[in-house]
Simulated assay, not measured.
Amino acid sequence: MAVDAPIDDSLLRRNANPATLDAVQLSAWFGARKVLERCSLTMEAKKVTALIGPSGCGKSTFLRILNRMHETIPGAKIAGRVDIDGVDIYGRELSATEVRTRIGMVFQKPNPFPAMTIRQNVLAGLKLSGTTSDQKDLLVEESLTRAGLWTEVKDRLDEGGTTLSGGQQQRLCIARALAVAPQILLMDEPCSALDPISTRVVEETITDLADDITIVIVTHNMQQAQRVSDNCAFFLVETQKEPGRIVESGPTTELFEHPRDQRTLDYVTGRFG
């Protein structure tokens, strides 16, 4: 059971230097099929960047490349580079484990570990990343607090993670990602399976987290992109045989109110997609 003591901010802020992530001329393949073509994007520190576009245009693939999950798929490969504060995440300086510790991921469908309690779920990332902590109770409390879940589960920490509602499970997964103090958090449609109330809570959590963590989110919800993001990148596939490309990117307000490309205007106003 978590102790009633002041939260030590150093626990989750021990890497309190949100990083800038730069994708430079990224192309990607699944076997012989090219799915992304020369995509470049700067994801600014302490900002929320939304990746928008129709289904099948490469947004989730792009996101998974950003923490080296793409390379886990047989036959998958990339060209180009991804830099975290100027260091290539695919280079020799960083291992895949270190990359995934510094750049966390929250998936579309909540995936708490079914055999673990709520507390164990929060701490699971420590073991996977090789991180240690002698203040685990405080770490659980702060992680759940920052994920907007502590008051709802503080008396249920020994219950299974899957006993929670869908929205609570997603926030538990956010807490699990936060426990290893990432500099960047990737979120692949984190609200697509949630009801409107849970969606609002998760969106509020994203806004709060952006003060300390760089966030990149894939979303098909244009209103959500406008509510939570500072910057946007619009991905598009012109025909089914072509790879996805970034049509344009920039501040969210400009992309929605004064897009430079007619295709962007057509998409954000609902004319297609």
Rank of each mutant, 00 (worst) to 15 (best):
L11E: 13
L178Y: 09
E44D: 06
D137L: 10
T72I: 01
D8I: 10
D4K: 09
V268R: 12
A5T: 14
G53S: 11
G75P: 07
A115E: 05
S249H: 14
E152Q: 13
R176T: 07
A124R: 06
V201Q: 08
F256Y: 07
V202D: 00
S10D: 12
T151E: 14
T219N: 04
V106D: 00
V3R: 10
Y90I: 04
M1T: 08
V35N: 07
P114N: 12
I213W: 05
F256V: 07
A50I: 00
S60W: 02
R176A: 11
L178W: 05
F256C: 05
T205H: 07
D9E: 13
P251G: 11
P6M: 10
R200W: 07
R13I: 05
A76V: 06
G86D: 03
R81A: 15
I84E: 02
L157K: 14
K136S: 09
P243T: 05
F256E: 14
S95T: 15
D266E: 12
A50Q: 08
R171I: 12
Q168M: 14
P196I: 05
V153G: 11
R245G: 04
D195I: 06
D88Y: 06
I174R: 08
E44Y: 01
L185G: 00
F272L: 09
L186K: 10
F30D: 08
L126F: 03
